[in-house]
Design a protein around this nucleic acid. Structure first.
Lengths: 107, 107
DNA sequence: CGTGTAAGGAATTCTGACACG
DNA sequence: CGTGTAAGGAATTCTGACACG
C-alpha cells in the first residue's frame, strides 16, 4: 500500500529543521506530540526524527489551531481522515485485484 | 526541471542520520565532501544537511571506492553523469514544448 | 488551553591534527 | 590516498517546571 514517494514517510528530519520548515516553535511541535497529534521516532540518543509527511501534518495542525480548533478536536479529525484514506486504499487495492483477475478496465 | 519527487532534493538530513542510512562513518562522509563529491548545505550553526539524493549519491560513491576507484576519478564520472542527464532533461523539455505547440504525440 | 522561557544536562556536530600505509 | 581517532569547543536537543491567561 502506497508505493509512490518513497522518501515522504522516512523519519529523518530533526526538530530544528522541522522548526524552519514549518515556522513553528520547538515548544509547539513537542506539545502537539504530547497531545498525540504527531508521532516522531527517536534516535538512539533520544532526539526526535520527523518525516516530510509529519511536516505537512504539522502545517495542517497549525492551521486548525489558528482557527481556534482544540487539539482534542484536531485529533478526532485526523483519525477520521486516516480511516477514510485507508478505506480508499483498500478500495483501490481490491479494484486492482479485480482488474488483475478479470482484465477489466473502468471507463 | 524535475517536478517529480519534491522531497528527494531537499537538504534536511543531518550527518548522523546519513551515517545510519549509508553505513558510512562521519569521517568518510566529510572526506568525500572535501574531495568535492558531495555538497551539503549548512545550517545557521554550521551543521551539514543532506538530501535523499545525496544519500543515494554517497552509496554510489562508496561502491566505487570499494572497487578501488579514486575520488579524483569518481568526481570525473559523476560530472559526466550529470551532464548526460541535463542533456536528457533538455531533450525532454524541448519535446514537451514541441508537443505543446503542435499537439503531436509520439508512438 | 496553548505557548514562552530560563535551567541544567546530555547528545550531536565541527574543525584541525596526528597516525598509518 | 582514504580513514580512524582523541581533543576541545560550539550548536542542538531533551526534560520538567513555572508563568500567563
Amino acid at each position: 500500500m502506497r508505493s509512490e514517494e518513497p522518501y515522504k514517510d522516512k523519519k529523518v528530519i530533526t526538530i530544528g529543521v522541522v522548526r524552519e520548515l514549518t515556522g513553528l516553535s520547538d515548544r509547539q511541535i513537542r506539545y502537539y506530540e504530547e497531545r498525540k497529534l504527531i508521532f516522531p521516532v527517536r534516535s538512539a540518543g533520544g532526539s526526535r526524527k520527523y518525516s516530510f509527511s509529519d511536516v505537512e501534518r504539522l502545517m495542517v495542525i497549525a492551521d486548525k489551531i489558528e482557527d481556534g480548533v482544540q487539539t482534542h478536536e484536531i485529533r478526532r479529525e485526523l483519525v477520521q481522515e486516516s480511516k477514510r484514506s485507508s478505506k480508499a486504499e483498500v478500495r483501490t487495492m481490491i479494484q486492482g485485484q479485480i482488474n488483475a483477475q478479470f482484465g477489466t478496465r473502468r471507463q
